[in-house]
Simulated scan of single mutants.
Amino acid sequence: MAESPKSVAFWRSFPIFEEFTPALIEEVRGLAQQRKWTAGAVIFQRGDPGDYMILVASGRIKLSLITPQGRELTLRHMEEGALLGEMAVIDGEPRSADATASVATEGYVVSKADFSAFLARNPAAMQAVMRFLCRRLRETNEQLETLALYDLDSRVARFFLLTMRQILGEEPPEEAVLKIGLSQSEIASVVGASRPKINRAILSLEEKGAIERKGASILLRTRKLRAVAEPDED
C-alpha cells in the first residue's frame, strides 16, 4: 500500500476500522501480527476454527469451495485493502470456505481473543464494528434485490464485471483475458438460473461482442459488458 503500516490512513483503509479514532487505531495496531504467505500456501480450510481475521496488505487470496462433484468453486479474490474472517472473530463460527494465497501475499492477523477483549473494553469501537456489519448486510440485501430486477443477460454481464473488479481492481481495463475457473453450472448457481439458460446468455453476450471465449480463458470487454449490465443507462 502507498500508506505506511504505521499510519492511521493505512488502518482506516480497511472498512472495519474506518470510523476508529487514532487512539483506537493505535490499540488495534498493537494487536496485529504481520504475516507472509508464499504463492499456493493454504491459509485455512473450510471447517477450521475461525480464531483470527486477516487484513490483506499486498498480494491476493483466493476464497473457494470444493463442490460435491470435486470441482473447485472460486467465490472471490481478496486483494490489497481486503478483510476476511471478520465474521468468524465475532460469531465464533468455523471457516465457511478455503483460503489460498494466489500469489506471494503479505498481511496482518488479529486473533479472536485479542479483538474480543479490545471490543469489550472499547464500547465506541464495538458500535463502529456493528455499523460496519450493518452496512455489509445492507449491501448484500441490495445486491440480492438488484439481481432480481435484471434479466439473465444483464445478470451474467454483471457477474463478469464483478469478477473483473475482484481480480483487477475497481477500475478494470477496457479488455482483459481471464481464466474464470467456473463451469456454466457453477455460474448458474451464482446468478440463479439453469445451466441451459446460462449457455444461451453467454452466447448472447458473444453475439453482442461483450465477451469472446478463448479455450479455457475468456476475453471480457468492459464497455460492452456495462452496456448489457445497465441497459437503461445512457
Rank of each mutant, 00 (worst) to 15 (best):
L220N: 03
R213L: 14
G47W: 01
A57M: 04
L65I: 08
V42H: 01
T140N: 11
A216C: 04
T67H: 06
D51I: 07
F115Q: 09
K208A: 15
A216E: 09
T222D: 12
L75V: 13
S111N: 04
Q127A: 10
Q34F: 10
M130V: 08
E26A: 15
L220V: 03
Q143F: 10
V156W: 03
V109L: 15
G192T: 08
R76C: 14
I180E: 09
A97I: 02
E207C: 07
V89W: 02
N141E: 15
V28W: 00
F132A: 01
F10Y: 04
E79T: 10
T105I: 13
F132T: 00
A113H: 08
G107L: 03
L75F: 07
R155S: 12
R223Y: 02
F118V: 09
G50R: 01
E233S: 11
F44L: 12
A229G: 07
S183F: 01
I218R: 03
V228E: 03
A188R: 02
S4D: 13
S4W: 07
V110A: 05
S13I: 07
S154H: 09
L24A: 10
L63N: 05
S183V: 02
M164G: 07
L137M: 12
F159V: 02
A2P: 08
V89E: 02
P68I: 13
M87H: 03
V228L: 05
E206S: 15
R121S: 13
R35D: 00
G70V: 12
C134H: 05
S183P: 00
A193W: 03
E72D: 10
I16E: 01
S154Q: 14
R76F: 07
R136Y: 03
L63W: 04
F118Y: 08
E93H: 13
E171C: 11
L24R: 07
A128Q: 01
R195C: 10
E206G: 15
D234L: 08
A125L: 06
R223M: 14
K179V: 11
A148T: 13
R136A: 15
R35M: 10
T38K: 03
D51A: 08
G107W: 04
R135I: 02
P94M: 09
L24N: 09
L219Y: 00
R195H: 09
M130H: 06
G192W: 12
G215Q: 03
K208T: 11
E19V: 00
V56W: 01
S185Q: 11
G92M: 12
R35E: 06
V56C: 12
D234E: 13
A101D: 07
E26Y: 06
V42P: 05
A2S: 10
A99Q: 06
D234W: 00
E19N: 03
F160K: 02
